[in-house]
């Protein structure tokens, strides 16, 4: 009898828990609407897009104005990217332009839907990864080392063909688990400082850490590759990921690894609807 009761009680607990989960899930999807339920207790975004832009201009407006007057240093990288796009390389005797149009006309707007799920790699494909896959599979050319000058230049040029096009990344169907993995990483506490990406860029977005503004996660994916004053050079979003990892004294991951690609999907989805604007310019 006691044993029976014990089991009954356990079942009751499980049932209550399941109902609780269901109710919580229903509640979430009813009013959140934005992200899929991955079981993570999401923070509410601390700051509206309009308010964030206002603060951004208050803090960094001077630099942005100066950049507008003198030109973005990444402009030169973009020019080199255009040249690379037309340069014949590899055993097939082709350039990017051989397939994608003299100036890449056939790629216009394409990057706005990246990163996206690709069944061939059973994972998330990024622009950077796709360029290297193209070089290997179609041009017979060596893959470019991630974050090397030529790699960034080519990625920048391909993305610039979507400038002004609203970001439209899909997380439906097979992409969904990867999105959720990206979100889980975004919310994972890590490093000696024990911080998650989300606590700074969602919960405390819009606050100041010394003279720097904590950015809003909606504004992370729309402007890379870009020039960053602190780097003194043009780099990618994933270079920025590594910087963030190091800042909280966590171990940075390799470029274009699965986790970073999932994270890029997660962040780009947050930027859905914003126009692609490369090259960016950041402090």
């Amino acid at each position: 009898m006691r044993r029976f009761f014990h089991f009954f009680f356990k079942d009751y607990l499980i049932l209550t828990f399941a109902i609780g989960l269901l109710v919580a899930g229903a509640g979430r999807s009813a009013f959140a609407g934005a992200g899929p339920a991955s079981g993570i207790k999401e923070y509410k975004q601390n700051i509206s897009t309009a308010e964030y832009e206002k603060r951004y201009n208050a803090v960094y407006g001077k630099f942005t104005e100066q950049m507008a007057e003198q030109g973005n240093p990444a402009g030169f990288v973009l020019d080199d990217g255009r040249d690379l796009f037309k340069k014949v390389e590899g055993s097939a005797g082709k350039s990017c332009a051989s397939c994608h149009g003299e100036n890449g006309e056939k790629l216009e707007g394409v990057a706005a839907a990246y990163p996206k799920y690709d069944p061939a790699i059973k994972g998330i494909n990024t622009v950077a990864l796709q360029i290297n896959r193209c070089r290997k599979d179609h041009m017979g050319a060596p893959e470019l080392k991630y974050e090397s000058y030529n790699q960034v230049a080519l990625e920048l040029y391909v993305k610039s063909l979507s400038n002004g096009v609203p970001i439209n990344v899909s997380i439906d169907g097979p992409a969904r688990p990867f999105y959720e993995a990206g979100e889980a990483y975004y919310y994972k506490r890590q490093g000696q400082l024990n911080m998650s990406c989300a606590i700074c860029h969602v919960k405390y977005a819009g606050h100041m850490i010394r003279a720097n503004l904590l950015s809003n996660n909606r504004h992370h994916a729309d402007h890379w590759p870009g020039y960053r004053l602190k780097w003194g050079k043009t780099g990618s979003l994933q270079k920025r990921f590594r910087g963030c990892n190091k800042k909280v004294r966590a171990k940075p991951l390799p470029f274009q690894c699965e986790t970073y690609r999932d994270l890029e999907l997660y962040l780009t989805y947050q930027a859905n609807g914003l126009p692609v604007e490369v090259p960016g310019f950041r402090m």
Binding site: Y204, H207, M208, I209, R210, A211, L214
Partner: peptide
């Protein structure tokens, strides 16, 4: 500490 807190004598303190 000034990254997030106002502390004496540190310019541009954070407000987290």
């Amino acid at each position: 500490c000034a990254a997030c807190h106002v502390v004496p004598g540190m310019e541009f303190p954070g407000d987290v």
